[in-house]
């Protein structure tokens, strides 16, 4: 039961991310089934990417994958074609207006003078929930580890 619970949680988190992505692209509403399918495909895609990257890392006898492994994985699943221009295009896209819009929609707080560390929407969401229902909700849950890290860095 634990396993399905965790799957459920991650699925709903991913669905929020997918909604934000679609929203950044200018779409406001979809059918539930479409959103679910889109989320599912995104999950599968990221899983494929990370599994491939891990396989590359294991070939290199590393226990963690590095940027090189990730690039190889991207080439293998066809995200990049292996040329340098392609990588540049990806980097440009990442710094481009589309991703900036995505950040804006998801409420990503850029690091500014007041903020030392940029905040992503998940951190904000958890902090909001802690404010609403108290920190007990996340004690000894899958989020508690990341929270503790957060606290250490904050203090």
């Amino acid at each position: 039961m634990e396993e399905t619970q965790i799957d459920e949680l991650y699925f709903s988190l991913m669905r929020i991310f997918c909604s934000q992505t679609l929203r950044a692209a200018g779409i406001d509403r979809t059918k539930v089934s479409l959103l679910n399918s889109f989320t599912d495909i995104t999950i599968r895609y990221i899983r494929l990417l990370s599994e491939t990257a891990m396989a590359k890392a294991e070939v290199g006898r590393r226990s963690c994958c590095d940027l090189g492994d990730l690039r190889l994985a991207m080439e293998e699943i066809g995200l990049l074609n292996g040329s340098e221009e392609d990588v540049k295009t990806l980097v440009e896209w990442f710094n481009g207006p589309q991703v900036a819009e995505l950040r804006r929609v998801s409420g990503f707080v850029q690091d500014s003078e007041t903020q030392v560390k940029p905040k992503d929407w998940l951190t904000s969401l958890i902090q909001k929930q802690i404010r609403v229902s108290g920190p007990e909700r996340f004690y000894e849950t899958v989020f508690s580890a990341s929270n503790e890290e957060e606290d250490v860095k904050d203090s």
Binding site: Q5, I6, Q129, F138, T141, V142, A145
Partner: peptide, 9 residues
């Protein structure tokens, strides 16, 4: 929407 129940670590 509220998150589903967060499972224990």
């Amino acid at each position: 929407a509220p998150l589903p129940k967060v499972p224990r670590n």
